[in-house]
Computed example of a mutant assay.
Amino acid sequence: MLLRCFSLLLALIAGPVAAAEADIVLDTAERYVRLQTQGLPGKVRITMGRLEVDRLPPCSAHEAYAPPGTRLSGRTHVGVRCLGPNVWSVLVPVQIAVTGNYVVTTRPLAAGQTLQAGDLATLSGDISTLPTGILEAPEAAVGKTLRNALSAGQPLRSDQLISPLVIRQGQSVRVTSRGTGFAVSSEGRALANASEGQVVQIRMGSGQTVSGIAQADGSVEIAF
């Protein structure tokens, strides 16, 4: 009889302790998710799932982490591990919805086609379910060329676009070397095609080959 009463007493004590530990785990996971998603575009909504663990040993130090291969968007999991005095880890389900703008095509488009404003539209919705690299504004795509054909209504990614060439192989270009308090310009000849922001090699009049960043105006800049 005494043994049974003692067991019931332990169960009554362990219940609140386990519940408190589960609350700490959920709070640790949520704070981690909020920190990791604070730089995402749009409005982030986080919904923590139910922790499917009946009882967790007491823990004095918790650490949240993203399991390998985990993407912190849509339906996913966040890990929480105990660093001591007991060692354990659990996965906490979480739903991360990000409401924001994204660009879609308004009609079927062919590979190699240069995009115009009328080819694109902006929609608003949950972008957490879309592939990475989705464009938020049509201005980022207008004037660029498609790498592959797209159907109407398809979200547009940055890796599907080719920027127009600002430098062509063999053309004469102005090369500006910049450093703290100085800027020196000279002429050279491009050894390859380049879009704005790409690294391109230039053969100078002296025969020396240098590398710089292609600028929108067709010049090349070397920073020191």
Results as ranks from 00 to 15, higher is better:
56 L>I: 02
104 V>Y: 01
68 P>N: 11
92 V>W: 00
97 A>L: 13
97 A>S: 14
60 S>H: 08
165 L>G: 11
111 A>H: 07
86 N>D: 04
43 K>C: 01
57 P>M: 10
48 M>T: 04
75 R>L: 03
123 L>W: 09
66 A>D: 12
43 K>S: 08
67 P>R: 10
109 L>V: 14
157 R>G: 09
166 V>D: 05
156 L>F: 07
103 V>Q: 03
38 Q>A: 15
148 N>E: 14
59 C>H: 15
68 P>E: 14
79 G>W: 05
134 I>V: 14
156 L>D: 11
163 S>E: 12
94 V>Y: 04
159 D>K: 14
104 V>N: 00
69 G>S: 14
36 Q>C: 12
81 R>N: 06
39 G>I: 09
136 E>M: 04
158 S>V: 06
83 L>T: 06
61 A>F: 13
70 T>I: 08
134 I>Y: 07
57 P>I: 07
125 G>H: 04
91 L>A: 04
88 W>Q: 06
77 H>R: 15
141 A>Y: 10
98 V>H: 13
86 N>W: 00
127 I>V: 09
66 A>T: 12
86 N>M: 04
137 A>M: 00
68 P>Y: 02
98 V>C: 06
74 G>K: 12
61 A>I: 11
146 L>V: 08
109 L>Q: 10
162 I>S: 13
117 A>W: 12
41 P>Q: 00
49 G>L: 04
81 R>K: 15
138 P>T: 01
105 T>Q: 07
80 V>F: 05
118 G>C: 05
56 L>H: 02
100 G>P: 03
158 S>Y: 14
61 A>S: 04
102 Y>A: 12
44 V>W: 02
40 L>F: 10
120 L>V: 02
80 V>M: 10
49 G>S: 11
138 P>W: 04
166 V>C: 02
103 V>G: 15
164 P>K: 13
130 L>D: 07
60 S>M: 06
166 V>S: 09
51 L>Q: 02
153 G>W: 10
135 L>C: 01
73 S>W: 09
54 D>K: 08
129 T>A: 13
62 H>M: 13
37 T>S: 00
157 R>T: 14
123 L>H: 11
160 Q>L: 03
88 W>F: 10
121 A>R: 06
79 G>R: 02
106 T>E: 13
149 A>K: 03
83 L>S: 12
53 V>S: 15
57 P>K: 12
120 L>C: 03
96 I>A: 11
148 N>V: 11
76 T>C: 05
35 L>G: 15
99 T>A: 08
70 T>L: 05
121 A>Q: 12
64 A>D: 12
111 A>V: 07
42 G>A: 10
69 G>H: 02
124 S>H: 11
106 T>R: 14
139 E>F: 04
82 C>E: 06
101 N>C: 07
117 A>Y: 07
134 I>M: 10
43 K>Y: 11
118 G>P: 00
109 L>E: 06
118 G>Y: 06
90 V>Q: 08
156 L>T: 03
91 L>D: 12
122 T>L: 14
63 E>Y: 08
134 I>H: 09
66 A>N: 09
165 L>T: 12
56 L>D: 12
54 D>S: 15
92 V>Q: 09
124 S>I: 12
138 P>E: 02
64 A>C: 11
112 G>M: 03
36 Q>A: 13
